[in-house]
Design a protein around this nucleic acid. Sequence first.
DNA 1: TGTTTTACTGTCCTTCAGGCCAATAGTTTT
DNA 2: AAAACTATTGGCCTGAAGGACAGTAAAACA
Lengths: 212, 212
Amino acid sequence: MLVQDIFISPLENALVSWVEAFPKAKIAPLFNHPTVKPKKAEKGSDIVFWLHMNEDRQEWLTNTISTIQQTYSVAKIVVLANAPNQAEALYALSLGVVAYAHAYSPAKVLLEIKTVITNGGVWMGQDLLKRLIEVSTNLAGNQAAQVDQHLKLLTKREKQVAIEAAKGLSNKEIARILTITERTVKAHLSSTFERLGAKDRLHLALMLNKKA
Amino acid sequence: MLVQDIFISPLENALVSWVEAFPKAKIAPLFNHPTVKPKKAEKGSDIVFWLHMNEDRQEWLTNTISTIQQTYSVAKIVVLANAPNQAEALYALSLGVVAYAHAYSPAKVLLEIKTVITNGGVWMGQDLLKRLIEVSTNLAGNQAAQVDQHLKLLTKREKQVAIEAAKGLSNKEIARILTITERTVKAHLSSTFERLGAKDRLHLALMLNKKA
DNA sequence: TGTTTTACTGTCCTTCAGGCCAATAGTTTT
DNA sequence: AAAACTATTGGCCTGAAGGACAGTAAAACA
């Protein structure tokens, strides 16, 4: 089976690792560029588009993915990001992209990605998946139990502070109703973030306010 | 680099596909069984534990994973399930397992898994991943009419911003994914707060994440 | 009896959020 | 045509949040 690899990148020349991984790949600045126009009709042929993502091309990404999907329903799309970030990765994957990786990944990794996706898999970094799992276990699972699980990790005082913070109260307000200093509230919250792996009070609130 | 594969399974003999994929692998009924004790000190050596999961050994799984992680901080753990299911997969992955697959996966798949995880990836079935992504990206997807009521009061752009903010994203992150300035995000948010009568983004998040 | 955990407080500093006071340009409504 | 709304961005400023240092006293635990 013929598999065509097409890199869409603003770069003039493909990166070394790209060439190393796929010597026969084509590269073009835009999708639908004449030099890379794949033969659509060819039956059983697989096409992999490797989209090189710059920080400031979010919209381009969205449009390109959409166009590719409309034109080649079976094509696989991989996003190679100069500066990978979780939000973008999630977004891309939700659009149907089958892999999201660093643009400067070594050839070895690129080949691995290729193997995985041509076998129907989806490739993504470990950190991102961890995050995904965190988020969705909170949203999906036994919400009530999940929340208790979280609260169980906290000391009595931390629990009180966390609950108030999750309601949307400010540190000052919490301090008043618990008759402690604002500083102490901060201390309890910091330790709470640490224990629960929350980024800030908003994430804490989301953790403790999962719908039942 | 030496990579040791250790199968932990109640079976007397390894499955055919296991042997086919890893002829030199060891197998034992329990972790820490003398016959499979890996040399911990060996620098740069990778260890992959393949845990064979029976339906009724949930607790065993939890404990074994925990013990392995404490003993070999760098070890990779794969779960091979006789009867894979999403809940269990999620649970295992949330514990730090880097792959979850069917115990009777062909050797080819096992080798693919091995490749992926030794390169820092995580392996899982496509269906599960799709599900994960759905859950974590569709904040508004499964919300009640009440939330729609709120969102209906907003302009298109404000709605987009509000939803992202309610997920816990910072202004900068939102700006990035919508390809606008952080300043503009602030403008949309300010107007959103006004329209919905929200005090700040935390209250907004609570409004849009209300239990149905 | 040590050691660890909890509860509490301090200052300094950086970043972020959001309000206030603008402005421009396109679209919609009146 | 004029008025209102939408989308965008700028600068300035204040206050809150949270991390990076701290530190003390009591309780719990080993």
